[in-house]
Design a protein around this nucleic acid. Structure first.
Length: 921
RNA sequence: GCCCGAAUGGCGGAAUUGGUAGACGCGAUGGACUCAAAAUCCAUUGUCCCUUAAAGACGUGCCGGUUCGAGCCCGGCUUUGGGCACCA
């Protein structure tokens, strides 16, 4: 009987669906294990072979854990709000819901073919009102909360108003946007409107004026992680800085906890490092410089990490967007300053980045006083200082900061060296090492001692205080788009007011067109009667990361109408034990959902502070593109090996009409009308294509669809092959070359169970040799799977199969456990063999074979050895060696062992002629 | 510029973490079966010297070091992938 993967896979996929094999319930009698994939955005292009890589790995691990007796939660869903569906809707008029629905159906079909063990009863879709009800709910909770710096956690806003009415703004240490301080009496006298405005500065979800990344091409604002090199990640449109009123999340309040939490989770170092850099903690101090515009005095606070260099300050710099620019510009300089500010405003983010090397700036006309030396220094304005970081003002120490140095050189400002022996003729000396000089009381100190000494001095003399700054900014949370969650906020007499929880979900309204209005308002402004209680509703929608920030919690209890997740259910599943997904979410989703989870934790809705215990980043599968070479100005194509003789243009060619880099010329002519009468210059009668490894994408015609692989080889082969390709974390090009090898393995494994045409498994007892093959495999598989080394596990299977074939073993005692071992990797074939072996039900809940190391051990014989008559030790030699080989080995060993005199050698393991391992005591 | 990671046959990749380098698979060559092909099976396959074999020498990007012993550790490079990029 042949291995008919088509019939087998169809049969078992139907069986799993009918029997609800992977349906999961909370079960206190078993330990839980939560395995999560980053859910996909269902794009119109469907899945390519790169997408399932992580899904296959997580599925293997889930199935393995089930065999090990765990109650495994392994869900899947769709991140189904997003830009592409909306862009498509704008172009075609088709409702995003329809395209999204179609794409999801296609994704589901593709995933089902691969045989994943998801509990589909728990599917979530972020665009489903029953789901986004809880996204809106979380938003309202954030709107109704503030962050208490003292307690280090979020608290209800009522606690804050209480405190204000008793002690004014000084009563609390809260994370907030800047505003004027007020007393308790003032607070109590404020109007509702004034109170609302002040509270907005404290809310965790708040509306505020800020410089945002405005993308005119998309007609919306973007978060920092949605912008790369000054262009939007989606679409690649230019992005500019613009001051706008937007909803934001006070992520920055959690910077310290987001950083600290990294210590407690099992992620790769590189990913943690990325998050650390993104959070960007720096320890320093704030110091006040008295500044004078004419004879008017202002206090300007600066932030520095190098308080030790304060004696070398020769000028100060303000960010162009800083509010201080207005008050510190002297009348004489007004015109020049205005002109400069204007030129900075006009620059796009991209230009600003491109011009980082060109130094620009303008003198404000004012001066500041160095609090340590009393010296007067000029105040400049330059865009190398950022308004959003620190205080938007710096003290410049050109001798020891490369940016200040460049600025000083350009505008001929003095440079005072502060470290003995440093060379500042060509560049600044930025390193934190050496002995201080020209620095008053710091002279002679080492830099690393001078920094704390300087801060201490500053604090003692009331100049400033110790301060920790973070690079992490608040997340811009509104988008001027249609296809996202509506904000459950309406404006009652201009005051942002939350909808009552009973009004959730606030469903997206129907509108006739999906683009912004003529007056530039978001698409929701087109909706008829977009009001609540007679008042206008917010017209922005939430960004993509809103729906993905707590989806892992919803999977635990997806049909609950009373809560995001029931307390007891959350108490059972707790957190994600294993999360698999791409590294591209390092500074987006993985920061936001950690923040979101910590917020819910503070309010007592979830029981774990960190949501993802272990995280693995699967590598990307790249495409292998093929090229043809058209001679410029003709319709003639020259083969790869001959192209150097011509002036050619490289053109991507569909990889489906190329085999082993040889072009199917007839198919090529039929591919595109313009190639119908193409001519070719061949080598050896063939057209050889060039190739390159690139991102897998439609536009490069290098997409490999998993459906095709399933058709040709079957899902089990696809699963094994994707694992066999290389280490999970590594990026690698898709290459079908080796796929026959794993397919052959499955066919050979199948054949082990058959003799001629009949199923023929012997009930005889296994020999020690056969048991050794089995137990070596059990040990290896356990070890490798726990370390996510799936590629070597597949290899181990092949070795075991080779060994069993050589032994002609057909015994149930060996083959049955082998089938269980194979089932996480190739579940369909394993199920079929399991049932042929006479078992009812699915192999999914069989028990993982028990590993016996004694049965797997190599047979060695221990020989006593002496050296020079003094040293004594033993040598373990393989049993298979003959007497002469043993003698040779020991003699060879004695030669090399000369150096060991005086040490006690406990054990030596050798192979013929060579020492392999000493154990020395 | 700064911070991580990687480099092993013709190819994808192994190597119990300092102990037989190249497992396993692909490809290639030869053979068996077959009228033939496909499928399947067997053998060989790092490089050099050599008709072959034995034996030997050389071999994990480059230069040096530590060690009885280095793909693995240390110092200095080269190439390459990724992240951040005026964060004071």
């Amino acid at each position: 009987m042949d291995y008919d993967f088509r019939a087998i896979e169809k049969k078992w996929q139907a069986y799993w669906a009918e029997n609800g094999t992977f349906r999961t319930k909370e079960d206190p009698s078993k330990p839980k294990f939560y395995v999560l994939d980053m859910f996909p955005y269902p794009s119109g292009a469907g899945l390519h072979v790169g997408h399932p890589l992580g899904y296959i790995a997580s599925d293997i691990y889930s199935r393995y854990k089930r065999l090990k007796g765990f109650n495994v939660l392994h869900p899947m869903g769709y991140d189904s709000f997003g830009l592409p569906a909306e862009q498509y809707a704008i172009q075609t008029g088709q409702h995003p819901e329809v395209t999204t629905e179609n794409n999801i159906a296609r994704y589901r079909k593709q995933m089902d073919r691969i045989g994943f063990s998801y509990d589909w009863d728990r599917e979530v879709r972020t665009c489903d009102p029953e789901y986004y009800k809880w996204t809106q709910w979380a938003f309202l909770k954030m709107f109704g909360s503030w962050f208490d710096n003292e307690a280090g956690k979020a608290r209800p806003i009522e606690d804050l108003t209480d405190a204000f009415s008793k002690g004014g703004s000084k009563a609390v240490d809260a994370a907030c946007s800047e505003h004027e301080p007020f007393s308790a009496e003032e607070w109590n006298a404020f109007s509702e409107r004034e109170k609302a405005d002040i509270l907005m500065n404290y809310r965790i979800a708040y509306q505020g004026e800020t410089a945002v990344n405005w993308c005119a091409g998309l007609g919306t604002v973007l978060a920092n992680d949605e912008v790369k090199d000054g262009l939007s990640v989606r679409g690649g449109f230019p992005v500019e800085q613009k001051k706008m009123k937007q909803w934001q999340l006070r992520v920055s309040a959690y910077a310290g906890r987001l950083l600290e939490g990294l210590e407690r989770i099992d992620w790769t170092d590189s990913l943690k490092e990325m998050q650390r850099n993104w959070i960007g903690k720096s320890n320093g101090c704030e110091a006040v410089f008295k500044c004078y515009n004419g004879d008017r005095e202002y206090d300007v606070t600066i932030f520095t990490t190098r308080a030790d260099t304060m004696f070398g300050v020769t000028f100060m710099v303000l960010a162009p967007e800083s509010d201080l620019v207005n008050v510190l510009t002297s009348p004489e300089q007004q015109e020049a300053v205005d002109e400069y500010i204007d030129s900075v405003k006009k620059k796009t983010e991209r230009e600003r980045i491109a011009e980082t090397k060109t130094v620009t700036g303008v003198f404000s006309g004012s001066y500041g006083v160095n609090p340590l030396t009393g010296e007067r220094v000029p105040i400049w304005i330059s865009d190398y200082v950022l308004a959003g970081y620190g205080t938007g003002a710096i003290m410049a120490v050109p001798a020891h900061d490369s940016r200040d140095y460049a600025f000083a050189r350009k505008f001929n400002l003095p440079i005072i060296p502060l470290i003995e022996g440093c060379d500042i003729s060509e560049s600044s000396f930025d390193a934190k090492e050496g002995k201080m000089m020209n620095s008053g009381f710091l002279n002679g100190l080492d830099v690393k001692d001078a920094i704390p000494a300087a801060i201490e001095y500053v604090e003692k003399h009331g100049i400033g205080h110790r301060k920790v700054n973070y690079r992490l900014r608040d997340a811009i949370f509104s988008r001027q788009r249609y296809w996202g969650e509506p904000f459950p906020i309406y404006f009652k007499d201009g005051i942002a007011t939350p909808l009552p929880y009973e009004a959730l979900p606030l469903k997206l309204p129907e509108i006739d067109q999906f683009k912004p209005t003529e007056s530039g308002e978001p698409p929701l402004a087109r909706a008829k009667d977009w009001t609540y209680d007679g008042y206008p509703l917010e017209t922005s929608t939430m960004p993509g990361f809103a729906g993905s920030s707590a989806y892992y919690l919803r999977y635990m209890d997806p049909h609950n109408n009373e809560a995001l997740v029931d307390k007891a259910v959350d108490g059972y599943w707790r957190d994600v034990d294993l999360y698999i997904g791409g590294t591209e979410h390092a500074t987006g989703h993985l920061i936001y959902s950690r923040f979101w989870n910590k917020f819910l934790f503070d309010l007592g809705y979830v029981c774990e502070d960190e949501p993802f215990r272990k995280l693995i980043n699967q590598g990307m599968i790249q495409g292998r593109s093929n090229f043809v070479y058209r001679i410029v100005g003709t319709n003639t194509f020259v083969s790869y090996g001959l192209k150097d003789g011509y002036d050619t243009t490289e053109i991507h060619v569909d990889i489906n009409i190329v085999r082993n880099d040889r072009l199917d010329i007839e198919a090529f002519k039929a591919w595109r009308p313009e190639f119908a009468d193409a001519e070719f210059i061949l080598e050896n009668g063939e057209y050889i294509c060039g190739w390159a490894v690139e991102k897998m994408s439609k536009s490069m015609f290098n997409v490999v669809n998993p459906d095709n692989i399933c058709d040709e080889y079957g899902a089990d082969t696809l699963r094994l092959y994707e694992m066999f390709l290389g280490p999970l974390e590594q990026s690698k090009p898709w290459d079908t070359k080796g796929i026959d090898g794993v397919n052959r393995f499955l066919k050979r494994f199948w054949r082990l169970f058959f003799d001629g045409d009949g199923f023929a498994v012997s009930e005889e007892k296994a020999t020690p040799e056969e048991l050794k093959v089995l137990h070596k495999l059990i040990g290896k598989e356990q070890d490798d799977i726990e370390h996510f080394s799936f590629n070597t596990t597949v290899s181990s299977f092949m070795i075991a199969l080779n060994d069993l074939s050589a032994l002609k073993c057909r015994k149930r005692e060996i083959l049955e456990p082998m089938t269980i071992l194979l089932s996480p990797f190739a579940p369909h074939i394993a199920e079929e063999l399991w049932s042929l072996l006479g078992h009812d039900g699915s192999i999914t809940y069989a028990s993982f074979p028990v590993f016996d190391p004694a049965l797997a051990a190599e047979d060695n014989v221990t020989y006593p050895v002496s050296f020079n008559g003094k040293m004594r030790f033993t040598a373990d030699l393989p049993k298979s060696l003959g007497p002469k080989e043993v003698e040779d080995s020991i003699r060879g060993m004695e030669q090399t062992a000369r150096y060991l005199e005086g040490k006690t050698v406990v054990k030596v393991i050798v192979v013929p002629g060579k020492i392999v391992n000493f154990v020395i005591r």
